[in-house]
């Protein structure tokens, strides 16, 4: 009996590890091919497209890539401006809104929370025509503010912060601060925000990543080459000008995902925890 369950458990492990290993390869291989092909020239790629060993043509590919419209530095800078500002606005104002929902007993509190839950799922695609026309009329297309300012109202982030606050913000602390004569705004900034740090860090990662990766709204709003964010830059690689420059295309892709890879492997523990914690899609 015991023998049987032991052999069964070995079989279980063999199956589990083979499937997991296969999936792991599936996760890594496309990116591996991308990084390797970024160092190979068009001739090599046309001979054998699949190679696991890097070659020596990285510099040539860089020259080809940068010789055309693709400008990774510009994309990087623009994406940085948009993503960093959006992230800062989202985490600060989401914490503030969540605080209003948790710490104060106001008449419309419950309807307001219901409203936040209701609008959490509305995607940009639904309002894009009105949004574009509105921005066009006030001359804000090609203006990063059109992408940054809306981050003040991030329903999903408010929901996440509220859940965290309910669990870990002791209301006595606020009372104590009031007794000490601190203003409500001061209490929020100096006492509540430091307690919210873990939730803000998690939310910051997800807001940053989703803003960095966002293609739809920037593609609609930004028509000026100088304003292109990274995902729009990437879309240029699909165009005719890089049609035969395989190595350069792979290199361009590699450059766009490299910062994300670095960030992911540095922060993976928190990211994995954050996904499990929030259950909220970014």
């Amino acid at each position: 009996m015991k023998q049987r369950s032991k052999s069964k458990s070995i079989l279980f492990k063999v199956v589990v590890y083979s499937v997991c290993l296969l999936l792991a390869i599936l996760s890594v291989l496309p990116f591996w091919v991308m990084f390797v092909n970024a160092t190979r020239d068009t001739y090599q790629i046309q001979q054998t497209a699949l190679s696991l060993i890097p070659s020596t043509h990285l510099m040539d590919n860089i020259k080809i890539l940068l010789g055309k419209t693709f400008d990774p530095m510009k994309g990087l800078t623009n994406s940085m401006i948009v993503s960093v500002s959006s992230t800062l606005l989202t985490i600060y104002f989401s914490a503030l809104t969540a605080y209003a929902l948790v710490a104060y007993n106001w008449k419309l509190r419950s309807p307001f929370f219901t409203f936040i839950l209701a609008v959490m799922m509305i995607p940009a695609q639904v309002s894009v025509i009105g949004f574009y026309q509105f921005m066009y009329k006030i001359g804000m297309t090609n203006n990063f503010l059109a992408l940054i300012l809306p981050s003040v109202a991030a329903p999903a982030a408010v929901f996440f912060m509220r859940q965290f606050m309910l669990a870990s913000l002791p209301l006595e602390l606020i009372e104590a601060s009031r007794i000490d004569g601190a203003s409500e705004f001061y209490t929020f900034n100096k006492i509540v925000l430091p307690i919210m740090k873990p939730a803000m860090a998690t939310q910051a990662i997800f807001t940053f990543v989703s803003s960095w990766n966002s293609l739809f709204l920037p593609l609609v709003l930004l028509t000026d080459n100088d304003k292109y964010t990274m995902p729009i830059m990437v879309s240029l690689l699909r165009g005719d000008i890089y049609k035969t420059e395989y190595g350069a295309v792979y290199l361009g892709l590699a450059l766009t995902v490299l910062p994300l890879f670095i960030a992911y492997f540095l922060l993976s523990r928190y990211i994995i925890e954050g996904v499990a914690l929030g259950g909220v899609k970014g």
């Binding site: 104060y104 106001w106 025509i129 409500e184």
Partner: peptide, 29 residues
């Protein structure tokens, strides 16, 4: 203290009204 509930939600409400609610209604129109 209840009024702070409104005050602190105000930035969210204003920005949501301008950048989400209005565009949705406008799209509908």
């Amino acid at each position: 203290y209840a009024k702070y509930g409104y005050i602190f939600s105000l930035p969210f409400i204003i920005v949501f009204a301008i950048f989400s609610l209005y565009p949705i209604i406008y799209t509908g129109v």
